[in-house]
């Protein structure tokens, strides 16, 4: 979708047209998830371990075909949360797979929690819902 309208301003600079570009669908969805593992400090997890557990979760619920979906682990924060990027058409399935994952390969109980989901990565930079925590 693309339409062009002439800008109706009278600036000293030559009048530039105002162009408008729109994207109908976003190809990715970004999820901020936290992971808690029984009797373990999940803040010590590194990126590879985190990614391995995400892939395990996907393999359990969605099988080998589902686990082949390209999931990118963009950032691991120190407190056991991370940002992952998933293709938007398989978001529900991956979200469900993360939610249903209950125990690590070593037999410890664990849980993924999706804290924030957004089609824009910038949307995850701030969460306006935890103000009370931020101020106190």
């Amino acid at each position: 979708m693309k339409c062009t309208t002439a800008a109706e301003n009278s600036n000293p600079v030559p009048v530039k047209p105002t162009n408008f570009y729109a994207e109908k669908t976003q190809s990715y969805v970004y999820l901020k998830t936290s992971l808690t593992i029984e009797d373990e400090n999940s803040s010590e997890l590194n990126g590879n371990q985190y990614k391995f557990l995400i892939l395990q979760a996907m393999k359990e619920t969605l099988g080998q075909v589902g686990a082949a979906t390209p999931v990118d682990l963009l950032k691991v924060f120190g407190d056991g949360t991370c940002i992952i990027r998933v293709p938007s058409r398989s978001t529900e399935k991956i979200w469900a797979a993360l939610t249903l994952y209950g125990s690590t390969p070593s037999g410890k109980r664990c849980a993924f929690r999706v804290i924030h989901a957004s089609p824009f990565l910038l949307g995850l930079a701030f969460n306006s819902r935890n103000h009370r925590d931020a101020t106190s």
Binding site: K16, T18, Q26, R89, T91, F120
Partner: peptide, 21 residues
């Protein structure tokens, strides 16, 4: 079925910096 689960509107406008818009 393959539709995205969130509805999102995303657009870009190119403007002059002193524009009223």
């Amino acid at each position: 079925m393959a539709a995205t689960f969130t509805s999102a509107a995303f657009n870009l406008t190119t403007l002059v910096q002193t524009d009223d818009k």
